[in-house]
Design a protein around this nucleic acid. Structure first.
Length: 424
DNA sequence: TCTGGGGTCCTAGGACCC
DNA sequence: TCTGGGGTCCTAGGACCC
Protein backbone atom coordinates (compact mmCIF):
# COMPACT_ATOMS: atom_id res chain seq x y z
CA UNK A 1 0.00 0.00 0.00
CA UNK A 2 1.24 3.48 -0.80
CA UNK A 3 2.24 5.97 1.87
CA UNK A 4 0.14 8.86 2.95
CA UNK A 5 0.88 12.40 4.03
CA UNK A 6 -0.64 14.45 6.80
CA UNK A 7 -0.31 18.18 7.23
CA UNK A 8 -0.60 19.50 10.75
CA UNK A 9 -1.21 23.24 10.94
CA UNK A 10 -1.60 25.30 14.11
CA UNK A 11 -4.81 27.30 14.10
CA UNK A 12 -4.20 31.07 13.94
CA UNK A 13 -0.83 30.22 15.44
CA UNK A 14 0.43 33.56 16.77
CA UNK A 15 -2.96 34.39 18.24
CA UNK A 16 -3.12 30.93 19.83
CA UNK A 17 0.31 31.49 21.42
CA UNK A 18 -0.93 34.73 22.98
CA UNK A 19 -4.05 32.98 24.25
CA UNK A 20 -2.14 30.18 25.97
CA UNK A 21 -0.75 32.65 28.50
CA UNK A 22 -3.65 35.08 28.47
CA UNK A 23 -6.87 33.04 28.59
CA UNK A 24 -8.91 36.24 28.75
CA UNK A 25 -8.35 36.43 25.01
CA UNK A 26 -10.45 33.32 24.35
CA UNK A 27 -13.51 34.23 22.34
CA UNK A 28 -12.22 37.78 21.79
CA UNK A 29 -11.18 39.21 18.45
CA UNK A 30 -7.35 39.26 18.47
CA UNK A 31 -4.76 40.27 15.87
CA UNK A 32 -0.97 40.08 15.81
CA UNK A 33 1.04 42.64 13.85
CA UNK A 34 4.17 42.21 11.74
CA UNK A 35 7.48 43.74 12.75
CA UNK A 36 7.38 47.48 13.28
CA UNK A 37 3.67 47.09 14.04
CA UNK A 38 3.11 47.41 10.30
CA UNK A 39 0.56 44.91 9.05
CA UNK A 40 -1.88 42.35 10.40
CA UNK A 41 -0.27 38.91 10.07
CA UNK A 42 -2.44 36.76 12.32
CA UNK A 43 -6.13 36.94 13.19
CA UNK A 44 -8.39 35.01 15.50
CA UNK A 45 -11.58 33.67 13.93
CA UNK A 46 -13.50 36.49 15.62
CA UNK A 47 -11.19 39.04 13.97
CA UNK A 48 -11.64 37.36 10.56
CA UNK A 49 -15.41 37.64 10.93
CA UNK A 50 -15.06 41.38 11.52
CA UNK A 51 -13.49 41.67 8.08
CA UNK A 52 -9.90 42.33 9.15
CA UNK A 53 -7.72 41.16 6.31
CA UNK A 54 -4.40 39.36 6.26
CA UNK A 55 -1.58 41.76 5.40
CA UNK A 56 -3.71 44.84 5.93
CA UNK A 57 -1.73 47.83 7.20
CA UNK A 58 -2.47 48.42 10.87
CA UNK A 59 -3.07 52.14 10.51
CA UNK A 60 -5.76 51.48 7.95
CA UNK A 61 -7.51 48.87 10.09
CA UNK A 62 -7.26 50.93 13.25
CA UNK A 63 -10.75 52.39 13.28
CA UNK A 64 -12.35 48.98 12.73
CA UNK A 65 -10.09 47.59 15.45
CA UNK A 66 -10.98 50.31 17.94
CA UNK A 67 -14.69 50.16 17.20
CA UNK A 68 -14.74 46.44 17.94
CA UNK A 69 -12.30 46.44 20.84
CA UNK A 70 -10.00 44.06 19.00
CA UNK A 71 -6.98 43.08 21.11
CA UNK A 72 -3.76 43.92 19.28
CA UNK A 73 -0.28 42.47 19.82
CA UNK A 74 3.13 43.27 18.36
CA UNK A 75 4.79 40.10 17.15
CA UNK A 76 6.71 38.21 19.82
CA UNK A 77 8.94 35.79 17.95
CA UNK A 78 10.73 34.64 21.08
CA UNK A 79 7.38 33.31 22.29
CA UNK A 80 6.16 31.93 18.95
CA UNK A 81 9.48 30.27 18.16
CA UNK A 82 9.54 28.55 21.52
CA UNK A 83 5.90 27.45 21.30
CA UNK A 84 6.61 26.11 17.82
CA UNK A 85 9.49 24.07 19.20
CA UNK A 86 7.16 22.57 21.81
CA UNK A 87 4.49 21.69 19.26
CA UNK A 88 7.03 20.05 16.94
CA UNK A 89 8.58 18.16 19.83
CA UNK A 90 5.20 16.71 20.72
CA UNK A 91 4.45 15.76 17.11
CA UNK A 92 7.87 14.12 16.89
CA UNK A 93 7.12 12.14 20.02
CA UNK A 94 3.94 10.76 18.44
CA UNK A 95 5.05 10.18 14.86
CA UNK A 96 8.40 8.91 13.56
CA UNK A 97 8.46 10.61 10.15
CA UNK A 98 8.00 14.34 10.52
CA UNK A 99 9.11 17.31 8.43
CA UNK A 100 8.95 20.66 10.20
CA UNK A 101 7.76 22.75 7.28
CA UNK A 102 7.31 26.17 8.87
CA UNK A 103 6.90 27.79 12.26
CA UNK A 104 3.34 26.46 12.48
CA UNK A 105 3.17 23.50 10.09
CA UNK A 106 4.53 19.98 9.92
CA UNK A 107 4.16 17.28 7.32
CA UNK A 108 3.93 13.72 8.60
CA UNK A 109 4.33 10.55 6.56
CA UNK A 110 2.30 7.53 7.58
CA UNK A 111 1.62 4.12 6.16
CA UNK A 112 -1.66 3.94 4.27
CA UNK A 113 -4.56 3.09 6.52
CA UNK A 114 -8.31 2.99 6.64
CA UNK A 115 -10.23 6.18 7.18
CA UNK A 116 -11.39 5.19 10.68
CA UNK A 117 -7.82 4.55 11.76
CA UNK A 118 -6.63 7.88 10.39
CA UNK A 119 -9.46 9.70 12.10
CA UNK A 120 -8.32 8.25 15.43
CA UNK A 121 -4.66 9.03 14.71
CA UNK A 122 -5.52 12.62 13.78
CA UNK A 123 -7.72 13.02 16.83
CA UNK A 124 -4.98 11.71 19.12
CA UNK A 125 -2.37 14.07 17.72
CA UNK A 126 -4.71 17.04 18.06
CA UNK A 127 -5.61 16.15 21.63
CA UNK A 128 -2.03 15.48 22.65
CA UNK A 129 -0.62 18.69 21.15
CA UNK A 130 -3.43 20.66 22.78
CA UNK A 131 -2.83 19.06 26.14
CA UNK A 132 0.94 19.49 26.18
CA UNK A 133 1.26 22.91 24.55
CA UNK A 134 -2.16 24.56 24.68
CA UNK A 135 -2.12 25.08 20.91
CA UNK A 136 -5.13 23.98 18.80
CA UNK A 137 -4.20 22.34 15.50
CA UNK A 138 -5.95 20.99 12.40
CA UNK A 139 -4.84 17.96 10.45
CA UNK A 140 -5.41 17.04 6.81
CA UNK A 141 -4.56 13.66 5.30
CA UNK A 142 -3.89 13.09 1.61
CA UNK A 143 -2.05 10.87 -0.88
CA UNK A 144 0.30 13.78 -1.72
CA UNK A 145 1.54 16.84 0.15
CA UNK A 146 -0.57 19.12 -2.03
CA UNK A 147 -3.71 17.11 -1.33
CA UNK A 148 -2.87 16.98 2.39
CA UNK A 149 -2.69 20.78 2.27
CA UNK A 150 -6.11 20.92 0.71
CA UNK A 151 -7.45 18.47 3.27
CA UNK A 152 -6.08 20.70 5.99
CA UNK A 153 -7.95 23.70 4.56
CA UNK A 154 -11.13 21.67 4.61
CA UNK A 155 -10.52 20.65 8.23
CA UNK A 156 -10.24 24.33 9.14
CA UNK A 157 -13.06 25.64 7.00
CA UNK A 158 -15.60 22.99 7.95
CA UNK A 159 -15.63 22.68 11.75
CA UNK A 160 -18.09 19.81 11.58
CA UNK A 161 -15.16 17.53 10.72
CA UNK A 162 -13.66 18.09 14.16
CA UNK A 163 -10.34 19.46 12.92
CA UNK A 164 -9.46 16.36 10.87
CA UNK A 165 -10.15 15.92 7.16
CA UNK A 166 -9.15 12.89 5.17
CA UNK A 167 -8.57 12.50 1.45
CA UNK A 168 -7.77 8.95 0.34
CA UNK A 169 -6.93 7.70 -3.15
CA UNK A 170 -10.40 6.17 -3.25
CA UNK A 171 -12.11 9.39 -2.12
CA UNK A 172 -14.12 11.43 -4.58
CA UNK A 173 -11.15 13.74 -5.10
CA UNK A 174 -12.67 15.42 -8.15
CA UNK A 175 -15.64 16.77 -6.27
CA UNK A 176 -13.39 18.06 -3.49
CA UNK A 177 -11.11 19.80 -6.02
CA UNK A 178 -14.11 21.38 -7.73
CA UNK A 179 -14.76 23.28 -4.51
CA UNK A 180 -11.21 24.67 -4.28
CA UNK A 181 -10.10 27.75 -6.19
CA UNK A 182 -6.93 27.28 -8.24
CA UNK A 183 -5.30 30.15 -6.37
CA UNK A 184 -5.82 28.34 -3.06
CA UNK A 185 -3.66 25.42 -4.18
CA UNK A 186 -0.22 25.20 -2.53
CA UNK A 187 2.28 26.56 -5.06
CA UNK A 188 -0.20 28.58 -7.10
CA UNK A 189 0.24 32.23 -6.21
CA UNK A 190 -1.58 35.31 -7.40
CA UNK A 191 0.38 35.65 -10.66
CA UNK A 192 -0.17 32.07 -11.70
CA UNK A 193 -3.83 32.04 -10.72
CA UNK A 194 -4.41 35.11 -12.90
CA UNK A 195 -2.63 33.37 -15.76
CA UNK A 196 -4.77 30.28 -15.19
CA UNK A 197 -8.00 32.28 -15.03
CA UNK A 198 -7.15 33.87 -18.38
CA UNK A 199 -7.20 30.37 -19.82
CA UNK A 200 -10.43 29.34 -18.15
CA UNK A 201 -8.80 27.39 -15.32
CA UNK A 202 -10.55 28.43 -12.14
CA UNK A 203 -10.57 25.48 -9.76
CA UNK A 204 -8.09 22.91 -8.50
CA UNK A 205 -10.10 20.39 -10.50
CA UNK A 206 -9.60 22.41 -13.72
CA UNK A 207 -5.87 22.53 -13.01
CA UNK A 208 -5.68 18.79 -12.41
CA UNK A 209 -7.20 18.27 -15.86
CA UNK A 210 -5.27 21.00 -17.71
CA UNK A 211 -3.00 20.45 -20.69
CA UNK A 212 0.41 19.27 -19.44
CA UNK A 213 2.41 21.00 -22.15
CA UNK A 214 0.67 24.29 -21.48
CA UNK A 215 1.24 23.99 -17.73
CA UNK A 216 4.90 23.07 -18.22
CA UNK A 217 5.40 26.06 -20.51
CA UNK A 218 3.58 28.69 -18.47
CA UNK A 219 3.93 27.48 -14.89
CA UNK A 220 7.34 25.81 -15.21
CA UNK A 221 8.32 22.45 -13.83
CA UNK A 222 7.04 23.37 -10.35
CA UNK A 223 3.56 24.04 -11.72
CA UNK A 224 3.58 20.70 -13.51
CA UNK A 225 4.53 18.94 -10.30
CA UNK A 226 1.65 20.66 -8.51
CA UNK A 227 -0.69 19.47 -11.25
CA UNK A 228 0.52 15.89 -10.82
CA UNK A 229 0.17 16.12 -7.06
CA UNK A 230 -3.48 17.12 -7.51
CA UNK A 231 -3.90 13.95 -9.58
CA UNK A 232 -2.59 11.94 -6.64
CA UNK A 233 0.91 11.41 -8.06
CA UNK A 234 3.38 12.29 -5.31
CA UNK A 235 6.18 14.60 -6.51
CA UNK A 236 7.23 16.26 -3.25
CA UNK A 237 8.87 13.95 -0.74
CA UNK A 238 9.17 14.30 3.00
CA UNK A 239 12.32 16.19 4.07
CA UNK A 240 12.93 15.09 7.61
CA UNK A 241 16.32 16.77 7.79
CA UNK A 242 16.19 20.45 6.88
CA UNK A 243 18.50 21.15 3.93
CA UNK A 244 21.45 23.42 4.72
CA UNK A 245 20.71 27.11 4.31
CA UNK A 246 22.01 29.02 1.31
CA UNK A 247 21.66 32.42 2.83
CA UNK A 248 21.02 34.13 6.14
CA UNK A 249 19.47 37.59 6.23
CA UNK A 250 18.56 40.28 8.70
CA UNK A 251 16.66 43.45 7.94
CA UNK A 252 14.14 45.69 9.66
CA UNK A 253 12.07 48.70 8.77
CA UNK A 254 12.95 51.63 10.99
CA UNK A 255 10.56 52.96 13.59
CA UNK A 256 11.22 56.43 12.15
CA UNK A 257 12.73 57.31 8.78
CA UNK A 258 16.50 57.75 9.01
CA UNK A 259 18.46 60.49 7.26
CA UNK A 260 21.82 60.43 9.06
CA UNK A 261 24.73 58.22 8.05
CA UNK A 262 25.62 57.66 11.70
CA UNK A 263 22.26 56.07 12.38
CA UNK A 264 22.51 53.95 9.25
CA UNK A 265 25.89 52.80 10.59
CA UNK A 266 24.36 51.73 13.85
CA UNK A 267 21.43 49.91 12.29
CA UNK A 268 23.71 48.15 9.82
CA UNK A 269 26.10 47.04 12.56
CA UNK A 270 23.13 45.84 14.58
CA UNK A 271 21.65 43.71 11.83
CA UNK A 272 25.03 42.36 10.76
CA UNK A 273 25.65 41.33 14.38
CA UNK A 274 22.34 39.49 14.43
CA UNK A 275 23.02 37.77 11.10
CA UNK A 276 26.50 36.72 12.29
CA UNK A 277 24.97 35.31 15.46
CA UNK A 278 22.58 33.19 13.37
CA UNK A 279 25.51 32.12 11.24
CA UNK A 280 27.49 30.88 14.23
CA UNK A 281 24.43 29.21 15.74
CA UNK A 282 24.32 27.04 12.63
CA UNK A 283 28.08 26.49 12.56
CA UNK A 284 28.49 28.25 9.25
CA UNK A 285 30.78 30.82 7.69
CA UNK A 286 29.79 33.28 4.98
CA UNK A 287 31.75 33.85 1.78
CA UNK A 288 29.90 36.91 0.64
CA UNK A 289 27.83 39.76 2.00
CA UNK A 290 25.10 41.87 0.43
CA UNK A 291 23.97 45.15 1.93
CA UNK A 292 20.89 46.94 0.68
CA UNK A 293 19.00 50.02 1.68
CA UNK A 294 15.79 51.65 0.57
CA UNK A 295 13.58 54.65 1.15
CA UNK A 296 9.88 54.23 1.90
CA UNK A 297 8.25 53.28 -1.39
CA UNK A 298 4.83 54.32 -0.15
CA UNK A 299 5.97 57.87 0.46
CA UNK A 300 5.64 59.00 -3.14
CA UNK A 301 5.94 62.59 -1.94
CA UNK A 302 9.59 61.94 -1.05
CA UNK A 303 12.56 61.27 -3.34
CA UNK A 304 13.09 57.53 -3.79
CA UNK A 305 16.33 55.58 -3.72
CA UNK A 306 17.13 51.91 -3.35
CA UNK A 307 20.41 50.18 -3.97
CA UNK A 308 22.48 47.18 -3.00
CA UNK A 309 26.07 46.11 -3.01
CA UNK A 310 27.51 42.62 -2.80
CA UNK A 311 31.09 41.85 -1.89
CA UNK A 312 33.05 38.65 -1.78
CA UNK A 313 34.77 38.42 1.58
CA UNK A 314 38.55 37.97 1.57
CA UNK A 315 38.04 34.75 3.55
CA UNK A 316 34.81 33.02 4.61
CA UNK A 317 34.03 34.16 8.13
CA UNK A 318 31.49 34.28 10.94
CA UNK A 319 33.39 37.00 12.78
CA UNK A 320 31.05 39.84 13.70
CA UNK A 321 33.76 42.50 13.73
CA UNK A 322 35.01 41.48 10.31
CA UNK A 323 31.50 41.39 8.87
CA UNK A 324 30.67 44.79 10.37
CA UNK A 325 33.84 46.25 8.86
CA UNK A 326 32.98 44.87 5.42
CA UNK A 327 29.38 46.05 5.63
CA UNK A 328 30.59 49.55 6.48
CA UNK A 329 32.54 49.58 3.22
CA UNK A 330 29.33 48.76 1.38
CA UNK A 331 27.34 51.33 3.28
CA UNK A 332 29.85 54.04 2.44
CA UNK A 333 29.35 53.34 -1.24
CA UNK A 334 25.59 53.03 -1.05
CA UNK A 335 24.64 55.90 1.20
CA UNK A 336 23.43 59.11 -0.42
CA UNK A 337 22.48 62.02 1.74
CA UNK A 338 19.23 63.82 1.09
CA UNK A 339 17.05 60.73 1.38
CA UNK A 340 14.87 59.47 4.20
CA UNK A 341 15.66 55.79 4.57
CA UNK A 342 13.14 53.26 5.71
CA UNK A 343 15.17 50.10 5.80
CA UNK A 344 18.61 48.59 5.64
CA UNK A 345 19.31 44.88 5.37
CA UNK A 346 22.14 42.43 5.16
CA UNK A 347 22.28 39.03 3.46
CA UNK A 348 25.11 36.58 4.09
CA UNK A 349 25.59 34.02 1.34
CA UNK A 350 28.04 31.44 -0.02
CA UNK A 351 27.65 29.68 3.31
CA UNK A 352 30.00 26.86 4.20
CA UNK A 353 30.34 24.70 7.32
CA UNK A 354 32.68 26.36 9.79
CA UNK A 355 34.97 23.33 10.13
CA UNK A 356 35.80 23.26 6.42
CA UNK A 357 39.26 24.63 5.83
CA UNK A 358 39.12 27.30 3.22
CA UNK A 359 41.83 28.45 0.89
CA UNK A 360 43.91 31.04 2.74
CA UNK A 361 44.36 34.40 1.09
CA UNK A 362 47.99 34.97 0.18
CA UNK A 363 47.68 38.74 0.38
CA UNK A 364 45.92 39.07 3.68
CA UNK A 365 47.63 38.47 6.97
CA UNK A 366 45.74 35.91 9.02
CA UNK A 367 43.55 37.59 11.61
CA UNK A 368 43.76 36.97 15.26
CA UNK A 369 41.39 34.17 16.00
CA UNK A 370 38.34 35.64 17.69
CA UNK A 371 36.36 32.39 17.88
CA UNK A 372 36.59 32.28 21.66
CA UNK A 373 35.44 35.85 21.93
CA UNK A 374 32.34 35.14 19.86
CA UNK A 375 31.63 31.94 21.70
CA UNK A 376 31.65 33.88 24.94
CA UNK A 377 29.56 36.65 23.39
CA UNK A 378 26.93 34.21 22.16
CA UNK A 379 26.81 32.37 25.46
CA UNK A 380 26.36 35.55 27.46
CA UNK A 381 23.65 36.87 25.15
CA UNK A 382 21.88 33.53 25.23
CA UNK A 383 22.00 33.40 29.00
CA UNK A 384 21.19 37.03 29.78
CA UNK A 385 19.20 38.13 26.77
CA UNK A 386 19.91 39.54 23.34
CA UNK A 387 22.34 42.46 23.16
CA UNK A 388 23.48 42.10 26.76
CA UNK A 389 26.90 42.39 25.12
CA UNK A 390 27.15 44.03 21.75
CA UNK A 391 29.63 45.85 19.53
CA UNK A 392 29.73 49.58 20.24
CA UNK A 393 29.13 50.41 16.60
CA UNK A 394 25.58 49.06 16.93
CA UNK A 395 24.72 52.06 19.11
CA UNK A 396 23.07 52.22 22.50
CA UNK A 397 20.07 54.50 22.16
CA UNK A 398 18.96 53.18 18.77
CA UNK A 399 16.43 55.88 17.89
CA UNK A 400 15.80 54.02 14.62
CA UNK A 401 14.70 50.85 16.40
CA UNK A 402 11.52 49.27 15.04
CA UNK A 403 8.25 49.75 16.86
CA UNK A 404 6.93 47.03 19.16
CA UNK A 405 4.48 48.97 21.21
CA UNK A 406 2.17 46.10 22.16
CA UNK A 407 4.43 43.12 22.73
CA UNK A 408 3.40 40.48 25.25
CA UNK A 409 6.00 39.11 27.69
CA UNK A 410 8.38 36.38 26.53
CA UNK A 411 6.66 34.04 28.96
CA UNK A 412 8.69 30.96 28.17
CA UNK A 413 12.16 32.27 27.32
CA UNK A 414 12.93 35.04 29.82
CA UNK A 415 13.16 34.52 33.58
CA UNK A 416 12.01 38.07 34.18
CA UNK A 417 8.85 37.63 32.16
CA UNK A 418 7.45 34.37 33.50
CA UNK A 419 3.67 34.28 33.76
CA UNK A 420 2.39 34.80 37.29
CA UNK A 421 -0.47 32.69 38.59
CA UNK A 422 -2.38 33.89 41.62
CA UNK A 423 -4.68 31.73 43.69
CA UNK A 424 -7.72 33.50 44.98
C1' DT B 1 1.90 59.82 10.53
C1' DC B 2 1.57 54.79 10.01
C1' DT B 3 2.43 49.67 4.79
C1' DG B 4 7.00 42.83 7.65
C1' DG B 5 10.77 39.52 7.22
C1' DG B 6 13.19 35.41 5.72
C1' DG B 7 13.66 32.04 2.76
C1' DT B 8 13.48 28.84 -1.78
C1' DC B 9 13.37 27.49 -6.68
C1' DC B 10 13.14 28.25 -11.74
C1' DT B 11 14.17 30.48 -16.11
C1' DA B 12 16.04 33.37 -19.63
C1' DG B 13 19.75 35.51 -21.31
C1' DG B 14 24.47 36.89 -21.42
C1' DA B 15 29.40 35.77 -20.98
C1' DC B 16 32.64 32.71 -21.98
C1' DC B 17 35.05 28.63 -23.71
C1' DC B 18 36.57 25.40 -27.19
C1' DT C 1 28.68 39.22 -49.10
C1' DC C 2 29.76 35.82 -46.20
C1' DT C 3 30.18 35.46 -40.06
C1' DG C 4 29.16 27.96 -36.20
C1' DG C 5 27.59 25.26 -32.70
C1' DG C 6 27.37 23.40 -28.39
C1' DG C 7 28.18 23.51 -23.77
C1' DT C 8 28.65 25.59 -18.97
C1' DC C 9 28.31 29.02 -15.59
C1' DC C 10 26.50 33.10 -13.58
C1' DT C 11 23.06 36.51 -12.59
C1' DA C 12 18.85 39.08 -12.39
C1' DG C 13 14.26 38.80 -12.09
C1' DG C 14 10.05 36.45 -11.24
C1' DA C 15 7.24 33.61 -8.50
C1' DC C 16 6.21 31.22 -4.57
C1' DC C 17 5.94 29.90 0.49
C1' DC C 18 4.90 31.00 5.56
Amino acid sequence: MSALFALLDCNNFYVSCERVFNPELEGQPVVVLSNNDGCIIARSNEAKVLGLRMGEPYFRAKSLINRNRVRVFSSNYALYGDMSRRVMEEVGRLEPEVEVYSIDEAFIRLPAAKEEVLRITGGNIRASVRQHTGIPVSIGFGPTKTLAKIANRMAKKQPEHGGVFIILPESDIDSILKGVEAGEVWGIGSRSSRKLADCGIFTAYDLSRADETWVRKHLSITGLRTMHELQGISCFSLDEVPPPKHSIACSRSFGVLVTELQEMHEATASYVSRAAEKLRAQQLKAGCLTLYLTTNRFRTDQPQYANSRTITLPCPTADTAELIAQSMRCLKELFRSGYAYQKVGVVLCDLIPEHIHHQANLFIAPRRNRDNLHQALDRINHRWGRDTLQYGSAGLVKPWHHKQAMKSPSYTTNWHELPIVQAS
